[in-house]
Design a protein around this nucleic acid. Sequence first.
DNA 1: GTCTATACGATGATAGAC
DNA 2: GTCTATCATCGTATAGAC
Lengths: 180, 180
Amino acid sequence: MATARRGDRRGEIVRAAFDMIGERGYPNTTLAAVAERVGLTQQGLLHYFPTKEDLLVAVLRRRDELDVSGGAVAGPAGVLEALAMLVDVNASRPGIVQTFTVLAGESVTDGHPARAYFAERYARVRALLAESLGDEVTAQLVIAALDGLQIQWLLDPEGADMRPAFDRLAELVGRGRAAE
Amino acid sequence: MATARRGDRRGEIVRAAFDMIGERGYPNTTLAAVAERVGLTQQGLLHYFPTKEDLLVAVLRRRDELDVSGGAVAGPAGVLEALAMLVDVNASRPGIVQTFTVLAGESVTDGHPARAYFAERYARVRALLAESLGDEVTAQLVIAALDGLQIQWLLDPEGADMRPAFDRLAELVGRGRAAE
DNA sequence: GTCTATACGATGATAGAC
DNA sequence: GTCTATCATCGTATAGAC
């Protein structure tokens, strides 16, 4: 919301780049194509982001702004419920999910400019979720499930609905907790 | 094993490409670099694979050969045990896991040459696993967890060990089954 | 702030010799 | 089967004008 002021060239550029990375991946997203999308030349765009990597950083920041997992979270049951809602929200914005999935996948590559970002981010989210969920291993598992479900869903939106699968996980985690 | 005969140029090339895609991603894996790795010029390589995409197809085939999930699977408990072993095997071959993770992530991209391959593959594995596991939703979830755990592990091999997290899932699934 | 011109290094491919 | 030329592009980035 802070990035979207009218007349805000940088915001326009970041949003365009964000979308295009989801469509084509980072290596195949050219500065010229992004520039064209916002009615600029490639050189005009470089006025705002001196290098392509600078633009990527801005895109990742935007990703975090759009993230829902920001607020302070309640107990175990509360988190799972909140995450279920996140799954629904994500199901309504395939573009954003796709950008995240593509970048996360690419990031494991040697020397990828977003590698440190994702490594740090996963560690942080894992710790955050572990607080509400009790243990870190379950947190790791839940995050993994969310990521993996997105891949299958993006490849087959009808055949691999995310919500039922996540509910199944939530049910299992809840039951496992009750059994202790 | 069938692809590895001595003097088998094609096999050499595919293995090199396979490794390099895991290291750099598909778009950043150049034909010249692959060629050099096997002591050929870029044009010499093109003698075996007329286009870069032809090479990718061969790489995906090799991926399937290396896959452990080939054999006929037993009951629910048996599958989870077999998958746990797969997790251990994967933990010993980060290169292969990385290639798969990178390609799977990229594949959700519009018009990616491997998109159809992955869509088909997930549907197939889901169905196969559903047979042993009982329902398709659980199969979807288990596959998702495996994929997601790989991402976190590749980014942080020490901090995100796959095995404990998978065991936790297996335990939950087993318990859920027992509770029926 | 945005453009024109342009440097400069890839990259995927073709044609044809050996 | 493998190489030497050779292309046609493309892609990031710089310099400098308007």
